[in-house]
């Protein structure tokens, strides 16, 4: 009993001293609460559909950030992992009757294999060359999809896939809870020693190699992890839409994910997630504007990129929080001194 009380007290202390003191952390708590409580406020299947899809795309966007934002391996063909995960899950479900809880992780493992297949030949490439090479892979796979229509369904894709759950609310909870969990794991990875090495590879790969770190292994790890998470997103998408078709491999999807990540703030994980939850419903609910919808979308994106080049959510965070110049701990912008080392803040 004492132990339980100790942990409850510790939890309260952490919440009081580490969470409630920073607006960004409070925002994350509100985001979790919003996602978990949304079905209590609305049972509108259309609204739940939009937020379910936003959750799927949030995993996808965060997985791009893990690879390209953190490790600097510029991937312009990220739809490959998504499409491979979608097709993998769909084929396993349709031909081997593997239920979604099995087909989605197995589809994600196919995504890992795709990560290795891209990662190995791309190890010697950097920047623009890597970006162009990765751009080619989903196009190659799209060609294969059309070459073997008997297996892949050709232009129709694979349909008749099992639903994730019988009701929309259940589907929403499965996908949104998975999104919260997987994005937390991705954030934890970037906050770990592995994440620091990813970051360092992006900044100066030669220096990292000179420090005795096998950068090849870490770059491949980044490709595989990113492929795994994007593959999960693809599998969830296939089971939610009940179709896995060529559109999951299209170039437009690869660019969409880059727009989300850059808009929200690359190398943050939270940035791409926030961007998806801001832009995806915004564009969808702006359907009343009809022809002006895409124009408005482009206008919002351009405005953000022009005035907030590091991304909307990073900009917002910089506005409400400040980093202590001495101990590097973050503080709310209204404070005059650091909450830990009491050093004066600018």
């Amino acid at each position: 009993m004492k132990t339980i009380l100790f942990y409850i007290r510790k939890l309260f202390a952490v919440v009081k001293n580490e969470v409630l003191v920073l607006p960004s952390r409070v925002a994350v708590i509100f985001f979790f609460l919003f996602i978990l409580l949304l079905p209590f406020f609305t049972d509108d299947v259309y609204i739940l559909r939009i937020f379910t899809l936003a959750s799927i795309f949030a995993i996808f966007a965060a997985s791009w950030d893990l690879l390209s934002g953190f490790t600097g391996q510029m991937n312009f063909g990220h739809a490959l992992f998504f499409g491979v995960g979608a097709y993998g899950a769909a084929l396993l479900n349709l031909h081997y009757q593997i239920p979604p809880w099995g087909s989605i992780p197995l589809g994600a493992l196919v995504g890992v294999a795709a990560g290795l297949i891209i990662g190995i030949p791309s190890l010697r490439l950097k920047g623009t060359y890597l970006a162009l090479t990765t751009l080619a892979f989903p196009i190659i796979l799209l060609g294969l999809v059309f070459t073997f229509p008997g297996f892949t369904g050709g232009e129709l894709g694979i349909s008749g896939i099992e639903r994730l759950a019988p009701t929309r609310v259940q589907e929403y909870y499965i996908i949104s809870v998975l999104m919260l969990g997987l994005c937390t794991i991705m954030w934890a990875i970037t906050d770990s020693n592995t994440g620091i090495i990813f970051h360092a590879i992006r900044e100066d790969e030669i220096a990292v190699r000179a420090s005795g770190v096998n950068t090849t292994r870490y770059k491949l790890l980044a490709f595989c992890l990113s492929g795994f998470f994007a593959g999960i997103a693809g599998g969830l998408y296939a089971h939610f839409m009940r179709i896995a078709g060529p559109s999951t491999l299209e170039v437009s999807l690869s660019f969409q994910v880059v727009i989300w990540a850059i808009f929200g703030g690359a190398a943050t994980i939270y940035g791409p997630i926030g961007a998806v939850f801001f832009l995806y419903p915004l564009v969808e609910f702006m359907h009343v504007l009809k022809d002006y919808r895409i124009l408005m979308f482009a206008f919002v994106v351009l405005l953000v990129l022009l005035f907030m080049p590091d991304g909307l959510f990073r900009w917002l965070r910089e506005k409400v929080e400040e980093e202590c110049p001495r101990c590097k701990v973050r503080n709310i912008a209204t404070r005059k001194t650091c909450r830990v080392c009491t050093a004066p803040l600018d």
């Binding site: 509108d44 299947v45 259309y46 559909r49 939009i50 899809l53 839409m241 179709i243 078709g245 559109s247 437009s252 969808e284 359907h287």
Partner: peptide, 15 residues
Amino acid sequence: SITDATNAMERLITK
């Protein structure tokens, strides 16, 4: 976007 198409269909029917 196939996703947009399905959203539009769902909106027509449910909203």
